[in-house]
Amino acid sequence: MVARGFARSDHELPTSTKRFPDGAQCRVEIPSVEGPDVLDAVLAEADARGVPLHRVSQGSGSLLLTDAELARMAATAAGRPVEVSLFARPLTGWGAASAASHAPGGRGLAAQARGTEQLVHVLEDIQRAVEAGIRSVLVTDLGVLETAASLRAAGEFPADLQFKISVQMGLSNPASIALAERLGADTYNVPTDMSLGELAAVRAAIDIPLDVYIESPDDMGGFVRHSEIADIVRVAAPVYLKFGLANHPGIYPSGTHLDPVTVALGRERVRRAQIGLERLRRTMPEAVMSEVPAVGLALPVGAGRAKA
């Protein structure tokens, strides 16, 4: 279109020179992988479609997995290998005293740890995941992040444990996200609707990878941003391209009663990733994707290795 005289509105945005440890600009994440059966289906679909898969994440947390299910997810991912990031729960929205978090003006409270008791419960949930071999957890609360990072620094949590910040933390300006980085965040999931200019400003302020939804679920905006994928890689690298799914039913808290739905949704997310990556190859063939396995991933380890 530029050749026909149409100028791009984002032509002055800086190109990020920051990279993953292996020199790559981008990696792929599939979210909402709610349990071992969904993980198996997502891995099989990725193989069938030739989609490189670096990380899967899960919203219900280890809290709603049995010991056997948790161990199976860790073992499957370690054998692949692929990073598994489990939500650290419980949080206010799932608690009994959560009326305010369900009110229109209080929904931002839902993803916070409420009171000392819930702070302790979340840390215990992280410890249980660690003991099963998981090395990546999703965090939404700044106090949880700072406390968990201090436990990691003190050797109470393993040194290779990574804190992936959830989109639900909601910080959306360079100063706030830089604060999360200083408190111990290893990757940061920005709000789903950040513009390219806003992404570029955040990237200039921090060094950790950004997690950016290329497609987001309805309760996070329902955006489909495949047409922007090359620009997102260019301005936000290093970036996890996160393929959620618009137009699907709510699944949280999840469980085996929803397996037919969550398995189908997981497979479709991989299909959407194929669509996005095909677009990326057409519009930015020089983009560098990490090989699998990739340097720096928080891969699961053998059960029982709770300390570094």
Rank of each mutant, 00 (worst) to 15 (best):
S150G: 11
A129T: 00
D193H: 15
E146L: 10
Q112T: 14
G95D: 05
S216T: 10
D211Y: 06
G133L: 02
R135P: 00
L138Q: 11
E156S: 13
I134W: 01
P209D: 02
D125T: 05
A110T: 15
F163R: 00
V144Q: 02
G105T: 11
A149D: 08
E131N: 10
I208P: 05
E117P: 06
G197S: 09
V190I: 04
M194T: 08
A88N: 00
P174C: 02
L179S: 13
S85A: 13
A175M: 10
A154E: 15
E215Q: 05
H121R: 07
L119E: 08
A111W: 14
G115T: 02
L161H: 01
A178K: 03
E124P: 07
E124W: 13
D186R: 04
T187M: 11
A129F: 01
D125F: 03
E156P: 08
A200D: 14
H102V: 07
S172A: 15
A201R: 10
P104M: 08
L151S: 07
A103G: 12
S172Q: 13
S166A: 11
E198M: 13
M194E: 05
P90S: 10
P90I: 06
P104H: 06
S150T: 12
T140C: 08
G105D: 13
G115M: 07
Q112E: 13
R107F: 14
A99L: 15
Q162W: 06
D211P: 01
D207E: 15
E215A: 08
E215R: 09
L183M: 14
S216V: 02
L151A: 11
T116P: 10
E198G: 04
L151C: 11
D193N: 10
A100D: 12
V167P: 01
T192R: 07
R89D: 08
V130T: 03
A88F: 00
D141V: 00
V130Y: 01
R114M: 15
L91F: 13
D186H: 12
G93F: 02
A154N: 12
L210Y: 01
L91W: 06
K164A: 03
A185K: 01
R182I: 03
L171R: 10
P209G: 03
E146G: 02
A201L: 12
I206W: 03
Y188D: 13
A113Q: 00
E124A: 14
Y188A: 08
E181K: 01
S172H: 10
Q127N: 09
P104L: 12
S98L: 08
D186P: 07
V139D: 06
D211K: 04
L183P: 06
A154T: 09
S166C: 04
L179P: 03
